[in-house]
Amino acid sequence: MEKGLFTYVVLGFLVWAMLGSLVAAYYSIQYDTYKNEYNSLVDQFNTRFGNVSAMLEGISPTIDIFLSYGNGTTVWQNNTTPALGSTAFTVLYLITDNVNYTDFGGELGILVTSINGVANNNTHGWFYWLWNSQNPEWILPEKSSAKYILHDGDTIAYTYASYKEWPPPPPT
């Protein structure tokens, strides 16, 4: 490499290093400042209104969930308390080890494609249900589970059933 070119490359790296260090220091200080402000705000809130985490748990919905794998295996997960704003889809992550899904976007939303290794195929698939407590019966919602926000006292079910019979048999 020519000496002149080498000099300009080194100068370029020098500018880069100095400027990069200054900007990194700036954002490091910004991070510390906002972190301290956040902690201070949480402390003030806790002092006035009690523990924030405990309060959020207090207003989280308590729900019951039923899973039927279609082979006689059923699971009830009662008194589950997902975070406020959870949906019938996101709660699956709390109670199962493995969930797969396809996101169709827009109005269609998310379709659950397998739960704990039991996957949709040409003849069978996963359906989710909501329990109507006013008129005691299971309802097959006409929208994605990811679009239903859970409320306190809800009971939901996921059943693995055949497509041949429509509507599919409700959870039992």
């Binding site: 400027l19 200054l22 900007v23």
Partner: peptide
Amino acid sequence: ALVSGAPFSLVHV
């Protein structure tokens, strides 16, 4: 002074 001026220096340089 150096650190608080860093974003402005970045634009300038």
